[in-house]
Each structure stands twice: as C-alpha cells, then as structure tokens.
Amino acid sequence: MIELLRRYPLPAIVVAQLFGTSLWFSINGVWLSFSRELGLNESDLGQLTLAVQAGFIAGTLTLAMTGLADRFGASRIFLVASLLGALTNAGFVLAANQALPGLLLRFATGLCLAGIYPLGMKLVIAWTPRYAGSALAWLVGMLTLGTALPHLMRGATPGLPWEWSLLGASLLAVVGGGLVFLLGDGPHLPASSGPVPLRQGLAALRVPRFRAVAGGYFGHMWELYAFWTLTPLFVARELDRLGAPDALISWLAFAIIGIGAAGCVLGGALSRSKGSEWVARYALTTSGLICLGYPWLAGFSPVLLMVLLLVWGLSVVADSPQFSALAAAAAPRESVGSSLAVMNAVGFGLTLPAIWLTSGLWDELGVWVSLLLVPGPVFGLWSLARGKPPTGSV
C-alpha cells in the first residue's frame, strides 16, 4: 500500500485534499434540512461560514508566523489537522442548536483546515517539485471539489438525517489524513527557515508586480467564497420557479461548485500556452460579467439561469491557482513562502465581509446581492492592469 502511494504521490495528495476539505462547507451542504429543523435563516448560514473562514485565517497566520509547519513533518501536521477537524465537525452535531458552541466548533474546524490545504501545497512541492505548477491547479481543483462534496453527500442521502452527511465528511477527513500519513513527507522538502516575521511577508507588497497580482487575487477572493455560500440559494430560487423538488438543490449545488475543479485544471492547461495572467484575466472577466448581469436576467428561463450558474462556477475559481503562480514568480526569492502566506491571509480575510453582506441581505435583495460582488472582479482587473509583467514571466 505504502509503496503504491509513493509511486503515485500526486493522486494520493489530491484525493486526501478532496476528503479533508469536505469539512469546509459541510454545514452548507445540509443547510436546507438543517435550517428547517432548527428554524434558522440565511444570516445564520453566513455566520457559520464566517466562523470557518475566520478560523482558517487565524490558523494560516499562526503556521506562517511561528514556523510550526517547518518544525514538524508536513504529513504529521496534515494527519493531526484531519483528525481534529473530523472531531470538531462531528462535534457540531451535538452543538447545532446552541449558537455560541456551534460557532466555536466551526471556528475550530477552520483552524484545522489551515493544516490541510496549505500543507497539501507543501507536500506537492516535496513529492513533485518538477510539476508543481500543474499540480497546483489539481490541488485547488480538489479544494473546489471538496467544497462541493457535502452537497453531493446530501443529495445522495435523501430523507436521511442531516447529521449523517456531517459525520460522512468527518469520516472522509480521517481517511484523507491516513493517506497522507502513509505517504510521508517526501524527498524534496524545502529547508526550514524558522519563524517568519510578519514584516518579511509584508515586504513583498513593496514590489509593484507582486502588489498588482495580489490585488487581482484580493478581488477574486471577494467574489469566490460569497458565491459558493450563495449557490444553494440561487439554485433553490430557480427550482422553485420550475416547481421542481427541493431534493435537487444539493445535486445542482454540487455540480455548480464542483465544475470549478474542471475550470482549475483547464486553466492550468491553458496557462502553458497562454500564460497564467491571460487565464486569470479572462476567468475574472467572465465571472465579473456574470456577477453584473445575473440579476438583470433573473426573469428569464430558470434553465438558462442554471446554465449561467454553471459557467459562473467554472470561471469563478479557475484563476485561483494562476494568481498563486503569478505571485510566487513576483515575490522576492528569499520570502516566497511568507509573501504567499500574507497574501492568502488577506484574501481570506476579504471573504468575511463579502459573505456577511451577501448572506445577510439575501432576504431583502434576493439575486440582486450579486451586484455586491462586482467590485471584486473590477478591482482585481484594475490591479492586474497596473502591473506589467517582466519579460519572460508567466
């Protein structure tokens, strides 16, 4: 088993990433039955999602600034984070009807995810350094598919208690942690640099090219997680107009979010001939135009709008691995890791107000909340336009 995993390390890592990140939106996947049972609304969904995001931000900053990710083996951190994440996710079943304990458990789940997603990137570098660029597209694709997985699990268990889907996500996380632990740390781990001062990561923002790319990433993040949070609500509206059963919400939400994995892989393939910036720019333009146009098309055929949601799901995350590649190329060589850590932390920080605004105003504005996402792509494209890449860059 171990020999087989080490012969094909990339598939093992991306499957583990898929299973581990199923914890991220596990509540969103069961939201319909969960909210009806406990009498919750879309604002409550936003708060639970925000708690996970806040935990992830706190966890990534802690790992970056303490050097913990370099002091201990990446596979061991991944395993511990997966086990603890599975435990906190399962614990939510017991605390679902209590606001504060529920929020704290979702925050703790976000902390654990900081030991899964970033460490997955490190493991890719450790096992497949020559193919890190294309592998990164697969890794972000698995994050996307992992985000969508709870919707699939809920759709596949109609009529069963919502708790089963949460426990299923926890079980997957345990399996993912076990896969990585058996695989090990890899032969090409970068040398430890010790604790990273915050100023070292912030220093990259003085580099015009890095600042431009980071701005593009920030605009992308303003839109991404808010869209993923809203997806079941968009789908429910169109199914209601069609008179279709609510059981289809989970299946369609999975398809719309999950198709982003194909977008990441396709973007990675296109980047080899077109360049990472070309892919990032066109993906961000596409999703931004849909943000702007969706509410104006709200009276059209629900089937047409479902197709539009699929295109949105495909494009909204296709630029993510490309922004990471562009930022790594533009960051100072001596502080690539800390620069990316700071950029990711700021980007995920921007998901908090975006999710809070859109989920909190859904009851009042409906599909018009998508206009609140438009400033993200607009700012991102403007920032990219300001930073001209040096000759020969990606």
Rank of each mutant, 00 (worst) to 15 (best):
225 Y>G: 01
391 T>V: 14
21 T>A: 00
50 L>E: 15
238 E>Y: 10
106 R>H: 05
176 G>I: 07
292 L>A: 15
64 A>G: 13
268 G>Q: 14
20 G>A: 07
257 I>A: 01
250 S>E: 13
225 Y>M: 05
33 S>F: 09
201 G>K: 09
357 L>V: 09
322 Q>T: 07
9 P>V: 06
160 L>C: 09
365 L>T: 02
167 L>V: 13
24 W>R: 05
256 I>K: 03
107 F>E: 01
339 S>W: 05
201 G>C: 07
351 T>F: 02
354 A>H: 01
191 A>S: 15
150 P>M: 04
43 S>Q: 14
196 V>P: 09
14 V>M: 02
299 G>S: 15
374 V>S: 08
128 T>G: 00
200 Q>H: 09
75 S>W: 05
153 M>Q: 13
254 F>P: 09
77 I>F: 00
190 P>E: 10
114 A>Y: 06
210 F>W: 01
302 P>F: 07
247 A>D: 14
377 P>T: 05
387 G>K: 12
69 A>K: 10
110 G>E: 03
35 S>M: 03
226 A>Q: 03
20 G>E: 01
56 F>M: 10
12 A>F: 08
379 F>R: 02
66 T>F: 08
17 Q>C: 03
162 W>D: 09
24 W>Q: 06
292 L>Y: 11
168 G>C: 14
67 G>W: 11
279 V>S: 09
216 G>Q: 06
60 T>K: 00
387 G>M: 08
265 V>N: 10
273 S>K: 14
69 A>F: 03
177 G>M: 06
123 L>R: 11
160 L>V: 11
318 A>L: 05
271 S>W: 11
167 L>I: 15
299 G>A: 13
197 P>L: 06
339 S>N: 03
30 V>E: 10
352 L>C: 04
17 Q>S: 08
339 S>V: 04
379 F>D: 01
162 W>K: 12
156 A>L: 12
53 Q>T: 02
146 G>K: 01
181 F>L: 09
74 A>V: 12
219 G>I: 05
327 A>T: 01
130 R>F: 00
41 N>D: 15
204 A>G: 12
305 L>E: 08
46 G>T: 05
293 G>C: 02
374 V>L: 14
86 A>M: 14
113 L>F: 15
290 I>F: 06
93 V>Q: 08
102 G>C: 03
115 G>W: 11
373 L>H: 04
81 A>W: 01
143 L>Q: 07
54 A>R: 05
224 L>F: 06
125 I>C: 08
326 L>D: 06
17 Q>V: 04
214 A>D: 04
349 G>T: 01
141 G>A: 06
41 N>S: 09
80 V>P: 03
8 Y>W: 14
250 S>W: 08
369 V>D: 02
139 L>K: 06
195 P>K: 15
231 T>P: 02
71 R>L: 14
212 A>H: 08
77 I>T: 01
169 A>E: 14
255 A>Y: 03
77 I>G: 04
356 W>S: 03
390 P>H: 11
195 P>D: 13
40 L>T: 07
57 I>T: 10
77 I>S: 04
116 I>E: 08
190 P>G: 12
130 R>H: 13
124 V>P: 06
131 Y>N: 09
388 K>S: 12
8 Y>L: 10
330 A>W: 02
307 V>C: 15
114 A>W: 07
289 L>Y: 06
389 P>T: 05
364 E>R: 07
268 G>S: 13
226 A>Y: 02
296 W>T: 14
247 A>W: 10
281 R>I: 07
163 E>K: 14
188 H>E: 13
266 L>W: 14
294 Y>S: 07
181 F>Y: 13
